[in-house]
Structures are given as structure tokens and as C-alpha cells.
Simulated scan of single mutants.
Amino acid sequence: MSSSVLSSRRAMPRRPVWMLGGLILMVALIVLVSLGVGAVPIAPRQVSAILSKALAGVDNGDFATNVVLLVRLPRVILGLAVGAVLALSGAVMQGLFRNPLADPALIGISAGAALGAVAAIVLDWHRFGPATVSLAAFAGGLGATRLVQFFASITRPGDTAGLLLAGIAVNALGGAVTGLFTYLADDQQLRALTFWSMGSLGGVTWTQLRVGLPLLLAVVILLPCWSKALNALLLGEAEAGHLGFAVQRLRRTLVALVALGVGAAVALTGIIGFIGLVAPHLVRLWLGPDHRSLLPGAALTGAALLLLADLGARTLEAPAELPIGILTGLLGGPFFLWLLYRSGRGRMEC
């Protein structure tokens, strides 16, 4: 293990490079399919022509062009960014906690974002503007994470387990208050709450992307910069400290970046589960535990999985749209049952 995770100065092996190239091609193909498939089918050649003309500054203004550029392209770009952020955040949390079941929900981001959005819907804050629910969700996610960090710092400073314990408490508190708001909601608000809690890429506009996309891209670019430190953490926090890494500062930085990215993602799409758990596991099975290849591979896999889930959500019951959380749950649940079965059989054979 030590030779594989600490060989940070060596070039990346050929197999991960080839597999990352394959993932890039797969994502490009899924993007092309997502732009063409829907209630209005558009051939791949026509999609390519529309994108080429748009890049050249030519806009025909016909119906197919409007569908691709104004409806589907913002949705696909959001799916790529959110899927990458959720998967990267899951991989980072698993490396930080050295636990394959860790995800951003452990540090209260999802519970806080849900509380913020539910409060905005039930208290009718959206009358102040269409982005109020998203802003409230973003603020709730960051606030919950900051609360977790505060209690972890005063109860078990310097210990990752303190984050976990504080996260459990904040998650429970956020869930209870969210349940109270749900109890107070009327029928129309309950419908909005239910759909938001299951996630969707629908209705996104270029204006929303201009606000949220820079945050998502910043997190996607910055998190892989800590791949060497995460490799060292696989050996333990004490060992990482002996190797020259400031573990406490590293923990604070990574938690802050994850909170920023996941908070922005949840604010734009609602809560989408299992991407942050499934994508890192799949890539770890293919490429191993080296975070130099694991993090970019998880980002690409998460983007692909979310786009596929969104494609199913808007085509399986067309013209109606299924919440993405239903499809990701149907994918993630059996996957983890298989993982449990696989790990259990491995222990029995030993």
C-alpha cells in the first residue's frame, strides 16, 4: 500500500492514463446523446452542426437550435459540473475519513441545505426573488458545515472522529427541524418540497449557470491538487504528519472546499444521492486507491452517471419528468448491496 500511494513523484502508470482517456470519450458520447435525445429528437450530426455554428458565432434561430442551445445545453453543462463535484467530494471525504462509506452528508452539508430550502419554501421567501430557495439552500449547507467544524474543534480538536460525531448531531438536528417545517407546509408546498428533495436538472437557465458554475468549476479544479496529501492520509494521520503534511489545516481546507462545491450543487439541483458514493467506488475498483488517478476518474464517472440518470429521468415518462433521486437510488442501492455481498464473501474466503 505504501509504495502505491506515496509514489507521488513517479509518472502516472499507463493503465490509469488509458482508462481516463476512455472515460473522457465516454462522457463526450453521453453529452452528444443527451443533447439529441428527448421529446424533440435531433440527430447527432445536426447536434454537432448546431454546436459548431454556435462556437463560430452563427445562430440560425430555428426550433432545433433553440432546443439544443437554450434548453438542453445548460442542463447538460450543469449535469457535468454537479456530477463531477459530487463524485469528487465523495472521493475526498472517503480519503479524509479513510472510510469507503463516507460522503459529504457526514459533515451536515445536505441536511443544512435541505433545511435552508425547506424554510425558504414554507416561509414563502421565494416572493423575494426566484433564486431565494437556491440561496437559502447554499447558506444552509455552509452554515451546517461551519457548525460541525466549530463543535469538532472544541470537543475533539485535531481528530477526524470529532467531525464525524459533530456531523451526526447536526444531521439529526437539521432533519428534525426540516421535519417540523414539512409538518407545517400546505399541499402545494409539500409537492415542491418532495420534488426538490429528490433532485432535478430541469429548468436551469444560462443566468443560473453564470452564478453557480464558477463555484463548481473552482472546486473541480482545486480538489485534485490535494491528491498527494490524500495518498499520505491513507497511511494514517500521524504518518501523514511525519511526511510533512499539516493534517489539521489540510482537513479544514478540504472540508471547506467540499462544503462550497456541494452547497452550490444542492442549491442548483436539489438533493441527489449516491453519486458521491457510487462513482469513487467504481473508479477505485478500476484504477486502485491512488488519488492522482482516483480524483479525476471519479469526476468523469460522476458526470457520466448524472447525465445518464438525467437522460432517463426526462425520457422514461416523457413528457413528464422523474426526479433524478429515484433513479440514482435505484442504481446506488443495489450497487452497495453488491459491495456488501462481495466484501462479506471475501472475509468468508479468508
Rank of each mutant, 00 (worst) to 15 (best):
M1F: 11
S2R: 15
V5Q: 09
S7P: 02
M19C: 15
G22S: 04
I24G: 14
M26S: 14
V37T: 12
V37Q: 11
V40A: 11
V40N: 12
Q46E: 15
S48W: 14
A56Y: 03
G57D: 02
D62T: 07
R72F: 03
V76D: 01
I77P: 04
L78Y: 05
G79L: 08
G83F: 00
G90R: 01
Q94P: 03
F97H: 02
S110P: 00
L115P: 10
A120Y: 01
S134F: 07
T145V: 15
R146K: 12
L147C: 12
L165G: 10
G167M: 05
A169H: 11
G174M: 04
G174A: 12
G179V: 07
L180V: 14
T182S: 14
L193I: 15
F195G: 08
V204L: 08
R210H: 11
V219P: 01
W226R: 14
W226K: 14
W226Q: 13
L230P: 00
V247N: 05
A259P: 04
L260S: 06
G261A: 09
A267H: 03
T269S: 13
I275A: 06
A279G: 06
P289W: 04
P289R: 09
G297P: 07
G302N: 09
L308N: 07
L308A: 13
D310F: 00
A313C: 08
T315R: 07
E317V: 15
A318I: 10
P319C: 06
A320S: 14
L327R: 06
F335A: 03
L337Y: 10
G344N: 11
